[in-house]
Write a protein that binds this DNA or RNA. Structure first.
Lengths: 185, 185
DNA sequence: GATGAACCATACATAGGTGTACGGTTTGGA
DNA sequence: TCCAAACCGTACACCTATGTATGGTTCATC
């Protein structure tokens, strides 16, 4: 992306690795490939990292931090009314590119327990936020649990769809939230 | 799984490859690994297939067929009332192991357009089945589209969750379908 | 029971990826 | 200005996975 002007730091490598993950998936996470992207040779890599697994650990760690920050920002939505909160989270999921990292991470999580743990924690956190919002809308916990599960799973599914399925518009989201917010019959 | 008694056919290889995909993902789809599973050496593989991509094509083709059959079975649910239809499809998704193949295939689809096409087609078909069922429940097309999208995306998400998130019980599914079936306010 | 095709094992050659060794260049500070 | 550390390039060894060549087994069939 940004033309390389100076020398690289470890952060530049983890940044590049995350970009690669987003763009081409775990299979593309190779040293040579990364060096090509960063315009540098293998010697540079092995100065910053002992080996590939050390880079992978650093990448996982970094994504973990970024995700935590992102979730903290979401937590600050607490001041907003619950309906608006859900709306922001959903729209954020749809048009942001964040899900493309998430997809790669979930793929990666399959073969790396450390990554799987972070992804699971993140899912759990989002689920709780959504569940709480629905409770605040006036539903009892059982209903909230069901509807939160539905929405969160749908979010994960959307991130993985890449799909021939229709991408929801903003109007669709509003209709969806009307639906999720409505009282049980 | 089944002890190998006789010599292998091409179908045995595609079967083994699908098993491998299910169990360990695309990264494990290697000739040596497959030979070990089937208790045979590379010489056998290269008698049945010209190279790896030919096997991959055969595997994709086979999954395509199996999926089509599965969808045809779903289509036969047309005789059942729509509510029961949705119930069967949802329960089928939850406790069947079929989603573990699907997850691997979606992962694979990312790097193989041919596979992506098949997955997309399958998604589309399921979506239409669900949408139609909801229309038959008495909803107008706009509502049906939203709710069908929600349910199908949630299904995909569930398949990819592998997750710390709660796995819905049969009672949860019934509550969920009550919710999806209820008239718009 | 002999024969050709189907099926498999073994032994290479090759390519691409990781990791190591070491020398060269850039940079900040004494 | 000069030096030590930070940073990078180059060359090499190694391992693993693919693909090829070739010969050996097994099976059906006459």
């Amino acid at each position: 992306m940004a033309p390389r002007t100076a020398r690289l730091s470890a952060q530049d490598w983890t940044r590049g690795a995350l970009d690669l993950l987003m763009a081409e998936g775990v299979a593309a996470l190779q040293i040579n490939r990364l060096c090509a992207d960063l315009g540098v040779t293998r010697g540079s890599f092995y100065w910053h990292f002992a080996d590939l697994t050390e880079l992978e650990a650093a990448v996982a760690e970094r994504w973990c931090e970024e995700t935590r920050e992102r979730l903290d920002q979401l937590a600050e939505l607490d001041r907003l009314p619950p309906r608006e909160r859900l709306r922001i989270m959903t729209l954020h999921l749809i048009d942001d590119a964040s899900w493309s990292v998430e997809r790669a991470l979930r793929e990666w999580a399959r073969s790396t327990p450390q990554v799987a743990a972070v992804v699971g924690e993140s899912d759990q956190h989002v689920f709780e936020l959504v569940e709480r919002a629905i409770v605040e809308l006036g539903h009892d916990p059982t209903v909230a649990r069901t509807r939160a599960g539905l929405l969160v799973y749908a979010g994960i599914g959307f991130a993985h769809g890449q799909s021939t399925l229709p991408k929801p518009t903003e109007a669709d989201v509003d209709q969806l939230l009307d639906f999720l917010a409505e009282p049980a019959s």
